[in-house]
Nucleic acid binder design. Structure first.
Lengths: 346, 346
DNA sequence: CCAATTTATGCAAACGCTTGCAATCCACAT
DNA sequence: ATGTGGATTGCAAGCGTTTGCATAAATTGG
């Protein structure tokens, strides 16, 4: 534990003292220049900036945030990285952060119970200036804690939190409504739906949208046509098997996300049927794979990257301007590809 | 810049002093206990640990690493998050890190010139204990710097660095050899190859493996059958178009990665041909999408997750034991799926 | 039973930076 | 000249930890 031979960090480390000496001012003035402080004479500012540049000064983040400044690090808490959905959001976050001079700390929980709150605690403890949470389930436990600490955070894709949290999500219900309506317009009369994890508000909203579309079209809602899934591919597969085994199987299926649509593809093929010839499929999310599969998946596009960006913007406002919580809902959009076809006119 | 109203971080912050008071020892003793120091009486250790637990103490990372300890943060530098390849590696890294009590800081360069070295500088400056680099091109510029600072780092998927760096990669040449041999065994005699970005050693090795397999089978190498790609889907598409336009088009194509194989799929379909009926395809990497596309892609599996893990293990050894550089090459494996077929016996 | 070790613990000094407070400037009105 | 007050700048005190050095307690050996 007390080994020597470690990297000699001291090597060539430039501090604000060096910059101060080089530019002939005090170290506090250097700090002020570097932080864009108001009362600094322009000529001084220049001198300092030049010296810093010349010496190749790079701020030491720990020192900075220890001293009460900002670390310019944002923590992103995600359940996992397994599915394209989250990757897309992270891309958006990453880019927006980069544009604003922040760095990204990634925390994955892997759905381990209790771990999430532990992380949040550790994170809020100092290292990060704020948090973006892409949570798997409702995280009341530590939201409370964050809230009490007035620690800046934003939630993505979870709109059923009672408190005054900042939230970014998409028009889930409307998206589902349009997807279903599209199938109806194609002439489908028996449309199956495989739900997402019902603990997530997005899954609930999508189911609601599905029902609403049926109702708007004057079609009866048949409980048999709705089977519970959990957002994972496997559940799309088994769900589809269930639907196909029905006495009167559906001619189209709307799955609550793309991953389950891929599972549906498998199941349909396993039954010797063709997409879209025999069955039409619509997904939700529009992850990158959606346009890679064959046939290309018709799906409800969620502006994932944009959602990530939006979350960053809100978070930064909280951090820098102490702005009040905000809810942003971005528009989804039906992307029509090759997985649907007019219903065979029986 | 001097705004109040910021999160009152002070709220409920438990420090080492609090733990010291609670357990009736000095703060340095607490520090020693927390760092597993040798000379501490067992009873004291217990007292401290209990007090820490009771108070919910969480170490402040900035302070710790400022004071010369370890931050327990590892930086991971990647070019981007666009392709499944990198996501898989990160998953491996993430898990291994988690298992060892480290956190992950993610840096994306987006291929911006000069940015990489800037990051490396910032990172090495203090925040992270070590670095894992999944670089797009040969990064000599800052490798030197890291090396001189004796800063711990590991490279993934880049084996042509002259210096004594730690490197993790896969058996690229062997993998390509086997992929090509497989096609030969299926009876194919005109086998195309779309290369990766030739600035990357992996692309070069795969081309070498391809040639070696041809030679081993006593087949002549036809330069026309090799077209340059860049690892992106688009180049797989155009590359395939080029190959198909040949007077004697190939009956099978081996692409230097999966993404390009997907591009090839597109091109082949665009030409009204069928996979594997008319043309067989083999990819490289085995990213998650490979088993999602239709037909499922036969490809050379790289143990990406495992590579990430390996990188972490080596890095941690460097950090904790100051061990010497090591090179690890993990075995690839041909995964046979549905994208190949025996050559039509003309 | 005392000196020499070995084991435990405490004090104080960093680590590099931000910031409140006090001191110094300087332009302008008196 | 002579205040006056805002614009600038410097000093010193932390922020929460780790660690070298010094000291105290416990052990050992003669």
């Amino acid at each position: 534990m007390s080994d020597k031979g470690q990297a000699p960090k001291s090597r060539g480390k430039v501090t604000i003292f060096d910059v101060a000496r080089e530019s002939g001012v005090s170290y506090s003035t250097v700090s002020r220049v570097l932080n864009g402080f108001k009362y600094v004479k322009e000529s001084t500012r220049q001198k300092v900036l030049e010296a810093a540049e010349r010496l190749g000064y790079v701020a030491n983040l720990q020192a900075r945030s220890l001293a009460g400044g900002r670390s310019h690090i944002i923590g992103v808490l995600v359940p996992n990285l397994d599915n394209g959905y989250i990757g897309e959001i992270i891309r958006g976050i990453d880019e927006a952060l980069r544009d604003n001079g922040y760095d990204l700390m990634l925390y994955t929980t892997h759905h381990q119970e209790g771990k999430e709150s532990r992380y949040v605690q550790a994170i809020a403890n100092g290292l990060t200036d704020g948090l973006i949470l892409i949570v798997s389930l409702i995280p009341t436990a530590y939201l409370d804690a964050l809230h009490k600490q007035r620690f800046p955070y934003v939630l993505i894709g979870q709109n059923d939190v009672e408190e005054a949290s900042s939230i970014v999500d998409a028009t889930n219900e409307k998206g589902a409504y349009e997807a279903t309506r599209y199938l109806i317009e194609l002439g489908h009369r028996r449309i199956g739906h495989i739900t997402g994890l019902m603990g997530k508000s997005s899954a609930v909203s999508r189911l609601t949208g599905y029902k609403a579309a049926l109702e708007a079209a004057g079609m009866a809602f048949d409980p048999q046509l709705v089977v519970k899934g959990n957002f994972w591919e496997q559940s799309g597969y088994t769900g589809t098997q269930t639907l196909l085994a029905l006495p009167q199987p559906p001619t189209a299926i709307f799955t609550s996300n793309d991953l389950m649509a891929f599972g549906a593809y498998e199941a349909i093929r396993a039954n010797g049927l063709d997409i879209p010839q025999d069955i039409s499929i619509v997904g939700f999310d529009d992850i990158p794979q959606a346009s890679l599969v064959h046939p290309k998946l018709t799906t409800v596009h969620q502006p994932l990257e944009q959602m990530g960006r939006a979350a960053v913007h809100i978070l930064l406002e909280h951090i820098e301007k102490d702005s009040p919580p905000r809810r942003v809902t971005l528009a989804t959009r039906l992307v029509i590809r090759d997985s649907c076809q007019p219903a065979a006119s029986t």
